[in-house]
Design a binder for these strands. Structure first.
Length: 422
DNA sequence: ATTTCCCGCCACTAA
DNA sequence: TTAGTGGCGGGAAAT
């Protein structure tokens, strides 16, 4: 079967004979919009379908003990989205080291523990490229041609877990470090434009330069080289939006409101603040956890009008961006404990997400006794990993989820004219 | 009006 | 060939 349901037409998929539970908040019921509209203010909302939300759900669903293999079909079904969307998410998660492709339809959950290593490698590669050859190639002669930052390869497997069955061509490097003469195959060409690569290059930007914020326009411009092709940039930006959204949901970056027009994104991590013992710095700034509760899923990062840190002149920043490469080594704080493995998300330090003090626990009075039958999956899930969240990032994520779910459910229940407990 | 960015067609690829 | 992947850009929601 090609496309998984979720279309307003037919929903109930075959199989799953007597188990049509809806473990995850499926904001959009399989009803014609007319009906949906009737549900008060619960009309269709693209926010409920955002990649960011989906990513949060994805992570929440798989980031727990005992999870290692992920079937795309399964994920799509459980998350109630079409397969195509899963690819989007999975690609960026893989780019950041959270997932590893195992085989067709099969991914391996590495977890956040894989992030440090992935980032380290990305940074190294970025630096090498930068200082090495072609600091900023002026690009190909052709007009209608793009050339991203450069290639780079996947992050190797953490350790010995590698050879299991068939890594079926993991996102490998297109060229090698030493040389990359003329091996531009059609397939390579396609990969050059992949979301995964774009993600890595996007992240490299953050790891490489020291300006703390960057707008998607700037990013696309940088990643595009000089090919000022308007159309190309538009397309690129469109992709960057997708990437930025999922990276945001992972708390890798944060959307800020640049002084004027377009908002920019800031890398959460090298933000010179919380710098635990071993120099691990990443993710989650102090303020964030404070407002975590009110940041419901739909609204997430959409309108953060606060303007923390500084707002250097755009001009000045541009200059910095342009010469990014000089003092790259400056913020070399992404190092972390080198031992990263098939982390069992229980007591591990979650790589960059250093377990700081016990994060304020969510009041959790929500899943008392009301909704249970159709959400047992979710509940058990919640029970199983709430106590495991020892770090802010995930804890935050969790509470976001709970919050979103809670509000969604109450709204829905209310609108449906059904019960309305407490 | 502009910015975001979801949706899903359909070209590619892998099996 | 079929099935799995995933560019790509239209166009509608959100601002």
């Amino acid at each position: 079967m090609a496309t998984t349901s979720s279309s307003p037409t037919a929903e109930a998929s075959a199989e799953t004979a007597a188990a049509p539970p809806r473990p995850w908040p499926e904001p959009e019921p399989p009803l014609p919009l007319v009906f949906a509209a009737k549900l008060r203010d619960h009309a269709y909302s693209r926010k409920h379908k955002s990649l960011g939300l989906l990513c949060s759900n994805f992570v929440a669903m798989y980031d727990r003990d005992g999870v290692e293999c992920i079937g795309l079909d399964d994920a799509a079904r459980r998350l109630g989205v079409e397969r195509r969307r899963i690819y989007d998410i999975v690609n960026v998660l893989e780019s950041v080291g959270i997932l590893a492709r195992k085989a067709k339809n099969r991914y391996c959950w590495i977890g956040f523990g894989g992030v440090p290593m992935a980032l380290r490698e990305l940074k190294e590669r970025a630096i090498r490229e930068r200082s090495g050859l072609a600091p900023l190639p002026v690009e190909e002669p052709s007009a209608a041609n793009m050339s991203d930052d450069e290639d780079d390869d996947k992050l190797g497997n953490p350790e010995g877990d590698t050879e299991n069955e068939r890594p079926s061509q993991t996102l490998d490097n297109l060229s090698d470090k030493p040389c990359a003469p003329i091996c531009r195959l059609r397939s390579d060409h396609r990969k050059e434009k992949s979301l995964g690569l774009l993600t890595q290059n996007f992240v490299k930007l953050f790891l490489t330069m020291e300006v703390d914020t960057i707008t998607l326009d700037e990013a696309s411009k940088l990643l595009l080289g000089e090919g000022h092709e308007e159309s190309n940039m538009k397309a690129k930006v469109r992709r960057l939006y997708d990437i930025a959204n999922v990276l945001s949901s992972l708390n890798f970056i944060e959307k800020t409101q640049a002084d004027t027009r377009k908002p920019a994104f800031r890398w959460l991590g090298t933000a010179g603040k919380a710098k635990p013992e071993n120099g691990v710095t990443v993710a989650v700034d102090p303020q964030r956890k404070t407002m975590s509760n009110k940041r419901a899923f739909g609204t997430e990062l959409t309108n953060i009008g606060i303007n923390r840190s500084k707002v250097d002149s755009t001009v000045q920043k541009k200059a910095k961006l342009a010469q990014s490469g000089g003092d790259i080594l400056k913020n070399d704080k992404i190092d972390v404990q080198s031992q990263v493995g098939p982390v069992k998300t229980s007591d591990f330090a979650y790589g960059p997400f250093h377990p700081t003090s016990a994060r304020k626990q969510e009041p959790n009075g929500w899943h008392g006794a009301g909704q249970r039958e159709s959400t047992q999956d979710w509940e058990s899930l919640a029970d199983s990993f709430r106590p495991q969240y020892q770090n802010q990032a995930l804890g935050d994520l969790f509470s976001h989820y709970v919050e979103a779910w809670k509000s969604w459910h109450s709204e829905f229940a209310q609108a449906a004219g059904s019960c309305s407990n407490s």
